[in-house]
Computed example of a mutant assay.
Amino acid sequence: MRRLTAEEVGVHAPHLLDLQHKAYAVEAELIGDDRIPPLHETESDLLSAGLEWIASFDDDQQIAGAAGYAIEHDVVDLDRLMISPSHHRQGLGTALVTEVMELAPVTEVATGRDNAPARALYESLGFLHQSDFEPVPGLWVSRYRRA
């Protein structure tokens, strides 16, 4: 697992985007709604999001999982957690979230309200549910925070 430089993000952007689409397709199926913005992003969108990245690589040096985040005022916003479906249930999500949590005293994250696996992961790591909101009619998202 390693933090990617801006240059590495550019090199790996096609792979990150592919992983993002696969990961968010799983979430869309879980929550019954495919209007999740990262599911529809282009490579340009991904690169212009202004995120820093931590990635985990498999034995073939392919990205198995990644976390995109931003840090502001001692708060890290975990904007994206993406695990390849072939690497689900192997502890990779826990490892990536734990690594991101070490970057600042407070970590915030949001996930689909009906994404039970993601919610269970965050709650198991000590995140507390803050609120639910509806960014577009019928698409519910839950916010979590860990201090």
Rank of each mutant, 00 (worst) to 15 (best):
D60S: 15
G68D: 09
Q90A: 09
S56N: 10
I83K: 07
Y69D: 03
D60Q: 13
L103T: 11
V100F: 01
G65I: 14
V76I: 12
L78V: 11
V75S: 02
M82G: 01
L103F: 06
S84D: 15
V76E: 00
S86K: 07
S86T: 12
E72K: 04
Y69H: 08
R80Y: 06
A64V: 04
E108A: 15
V75Y: 02
I83H: 04
G68N: 08
E99D: 14
T98I: 10
G68C: 07
D74H: 05
L103N: 10
L78Q: 01
L78P: 02
A104H: 05
A70Y: 06
Q61T: 15
E102G: 13
S84L: 09
A70N: 04
L81H: 09
E72S: 13
E102P: 04
Q90M: 13
A70E: 10
A64Q: 05
P85W: 00
V97A: 13
P85I: 00
Q62F: 08
A104D: 06
D59V: 14
H88T: 13
P85K: 00
V100P: 00
Q90N: 11
R89C: 09
Q61R: 14
D60G: 12
I71M: 07
A67H: 03
S86M: 11
F57W: 07
T98G: 12
I83D: 01
R80E: 04
I71H: 02
E99R: 08
L96M: 10
L78W: 03
P105Y: 10
E99V: 05
M82K: 07
L92H: 00
V106W: 06
E72W: 05
V75K: 05
F57H: 09
L92Y: 02
V76W: 01
E108N: 12
V97M: 07
D60E: 14
D59N: 15
A95Y: 01
T98H: 01
G91C: 12
L78K: 06
M82A: 11
H73K: 06
D74N: 11
M101F: 05
D59R: 14
P105D: 15
E72I: 01
V97W: 05
H88K: 12
V75F: 03
L103A: 14
D79I: 09
L96V: 02
A55K: 08
A55E: 10
D79G: 02
V97R: 08
D77A: 04
A64R: 08
L78M: 12
G91N: 12
D59Y: 07
S56C: 09
D77H: 02
Q62P: 04
G65W: 06
G68Y: 03
M82W: 01
D79H: 00
M82V: 10
R80Q: 05
Q62K: 09
G93Y: 04
D60M: 11
D58P: 06
I63K: 00
L81G: 11
T98S: 06
D79C: 13
E99H: 07
Q61I: 14
D58N: 15
H87K: 13
E108G: 11
I63M: 00
L92T: 02
H87D: 15
G68R: 08
G93D: 11
A67W: 03
A70P: 02
D77I: 01
V76G: 01
P105A: 15
L103G: 10
T94A: 12
T94D: 10
R80A: 13
G68A: 14
V97I: 14
